[in-house]
Simulated assay, not measured.
Amino acid sequence: MNITTTMKSVFIAGVMSLSIAVQAHAQEWTLTPQTHVGFDIRSMGFSIVKGTFNQVQSRMSFDPQVPQNASAEFVLDINSLSLNKPSLRNMILDEDLFYAEKYPTATFNSHEFIALGDNHYSIKGDLTLRGVTQPVTLNTVLKPNTTNPQFLDVESKAVVNRSDFGMKKAFGGIGEQVNIEVNGQWKKR
C-alpha cells in the first residue's frame, strides 16, 4: 500500500466517523398531541374556514448544530379533520375538495432544512394531497422551550393554492389560497 492510498483510507475513515458522530447528535422528535396542525382559508380578508387535523403521525430528526441534516415527515388523517364550521364538513371532505373517501391521508416529507438565523428555518419538502405532490416551503421557527429541554416550540406556516392539488377552484365562496399552520411543540422521543 502506498502513502497516497493510506492517506485516502484515513481521510475516508475520518469523514465516515464525522458523519456518524453528526448523525448521533441528531435527536428524534414527535409532535405533541396538543399541537395544532391545520389550515385557515380566507376570502376577501376574512377567515371563512379553519380546520384542525386531530390525528397526525409525525417524525423529525433534528440537531440545531447541523440543521442541514434534519428531516421531517407528517401523515395527516383527513377524516380526523375538525372544523370551526361543522356544517361544512361533508362539503369539505367531498370529492370537490379533500375527496377523503379516495385519499384518506395527506403527507409532507422534507428534503431540505435551511437555517436562516435566530431559530428561523426554511423547510422545503413535498406535500401530497389528493394524490398530487407539489413542492411546499414551511417558514418555521424552532426554538428550545424555556421551561423544559425535552420540548422544542414550533411555529410553521406555508401558503398553497387549492387548485394545485386538484381541488375545485372558487368553490362556494371559499378562497383559493390555504394557509397551512403548525403551532405547538415537538417532544423528544
Rank of each mutant, 00 (worst) to 15 (best):
R130G: 02
N119Y: 09
R89K: 15
M60C: 09
G125C: 06
V49P: 09
T105K: 08
K85G: 03
A100C: 09
N69W: 09
N139R: 04
E112A: 13
F108Y: 12
L83N: 11
A115N: 14
F98G: 05
L129T: 05
Y99I: 10
S122N: 07
S61D: 08
T146H: 14
D94F: 09
E112I: 01
Q134F: 00
E95R: 12
S82V: 14
T137C: 04
G51A: 05
I114G: 01
E28C: 05
R59Y: 08
P64C: 01
P33W: 00
N90L: 14
G131F: 01
M44Y: 14
F74C: 01
N109S: 10
N54F: 04
M44V: 13
S82M: 07
I123Y: 00
V56P: 06
Q134C: 01
N145K: 05
E95S: 15
Q34S: 15
I92M: 12
K143S: 15
A100P: 10
G125V: 04
L83F: 10
V49Q: 11
L31H: 00
D96I: 05
A106C: 03
Q68G: 12
N145S: 13
Q65P: 00
I92A: 09
M44H: 13
Q27D: 11
L93S: 14
L127A: 08
I114K: 13
F62I: 04
G51I: 04
D77A: 08
L142R: 07
Q27T: 11
V56F: 05
P144T: 11
T128C: 01
D118S: 10
R42M: 12
N69A: 12
M91V: 15
T128P: 00
F108I: 01
T35Q: 03
T137S: 08
S110D: 03
V49D: 13
